[in-house]
């Protein structure tokens, strides 16, 4: 499938932004300036971006606790995200959500989610909205291998099939639910689970943007056409711990290093597009440099941004009370 040049440039920029955003957070978190905890998406960029390249602002996604990548891929503004993670009033959630609750409904981003398995039921609802309002949009649930075992996820696969919803379930399988391997925690096969609920199953290499883009395109087109839900199983590797500060003593020495060396989605993308003559290296270098500046200024702005005010504590619990 031919991908438009603009889509390629935009997608590379999104992947690079996620990478730099997360790498920078890794550094900044260690300084103690960032409150709470963060879960980094490094290494998984091609998945979120490859899926979201097939979506518009009218389409809805729900994300996970590892949500920064999905937010950026769906177009949430980076400076606002950074400010949010720093707990600032200028953050996309005014400093009241933090890393795990970044949402921007105007971009069809229904929120990162602090609850494993929280997203799939919500996505059934978003898909129901799209179906009922006949707006032609689809809803996509990102969930991990850990969440794949949650009752909420399994119920949602069933409900989406029963209601024939325009929903896509993107299983981002990075091999670990926190510190427990998917090989231990996930019985049977994901493919059989999809089949058990009567929905098509696709899988792809999540470090290859083109593979993800191709598979997600098929899945989303199927759902958008009114043919019901699809499961897309994306195979990935997580470069950092479950959360920042996790020493990953449960992973074999060299596992992450190998992933970084051989399965870096950005390297794979650059090689592919330059060899095929789709883009040239300087264009990508320009993006790298622009993104570096963007992240740098986002961090500076976030550190200088005002903190929430006392009155904010009581605001926005309700629309009206």
């Amino acid at each position: 499938m031919q991908i438009a040049r603009e889509t390629l440039l935009r997608s590379y920029r999104a992947m690079r932004t996620i990478r730099d955003f997360e790498e920078r957070l890794h550094v900044e978190f260690a300084t103690g300036e960032i409150p709470g905890f963060v879960h980094l998406y490094c290494g998984e960029e091609a998945s979120g971006v490859g899926v979201c390249a097939n979506l518009t602002d009218q389409d809805t996604i729900a994300s996970t606790h590892r949500g920064h990548g999905h937010c950026i891929a769906k177009g949430v503004e980076v400076a606002g995200m950074m400010a949010e993670i720093y707990g600032r009033r200028t953050g996309v959630c005014q400093g009241k959500g933090g890393s795990m609750h970044i949402a921007d409904l105007s971009r069809g981003m229904l929120g990162a989610n602090g609850i494993v398995g929280g997203g799939p039921p919500l996505i059934c609802g978003a898909a129901l909205s799209h179906k009922t309002l006949k707006d032609g949009a689809v809803a996509v649930a990102f969930y991990g291998d850990g969440a794949s075992n949650e009752g909420t996820t399994l119920e949602s696969l069933n409900l989406a099939s029963v209601w024939r919803l325009p929903a896509v379930f993107v299983l981002e399988d990075n091999g670990y639910g926190e510190a427990t391997g998917a090989s231990y925690a996930c019985a049977g096969s994901q493919k059989a689970r999809a089949g058990g609920f009567g929905m098509p199953y696709l899988e792809c290499d999540g470090t290859d943007f083109f593979a993800v883009h191709q598979a997600a395109g098929e899945a989303i087109a199927h759902a958008r056409a009114g043919n019901g839900p699809v499961m897309l199983h994306v195979h990935l590797a997580r470069w950092y711990g479950h959360f920042e500060g996790d020493a990953m003593t449960y992973r074999a020495a060299g596992e992450v290093a190998a992933a970084r060396a051989d399965h870096d989605c950005l390297t794979i993308f650059r090689t592919r597009v330059t060899q095929a003559g789709l883009l040239d290296g300087t264009e990508l270098d320009d993006i790298d440099s622009a993104v570096r500046d963007e992240i740098e200024s986002a961090v500076i702005a976030a550190k200088q941004a005002p903190l929430p005010e006392a009155a904010d504590l009581l605001a926005d619990v309700y629309v009206r009370y």
Binding site: T60, A62, L105, L110, G118, P120, P121, L122, I123, C124, G125, A126, L128, S129, H130, T132, L133, A139, G151, T152, E155, S156, N158, L159, V162, W163
Partner: peptide, 22 residues
């Protein structure tokens, strides 16, 4: 809409639908 007897998915779906226009 009749639902399966799966409260988590349909109550969650109701929440998601409410946040997206229904």
């Amino acid at each position: 809409l009749d639902t399966p007897i799966t409260e988590a998915s349909y109550i969650g779906a109701a929440a998601g639908a409410a946040a997206t226009g229904l």
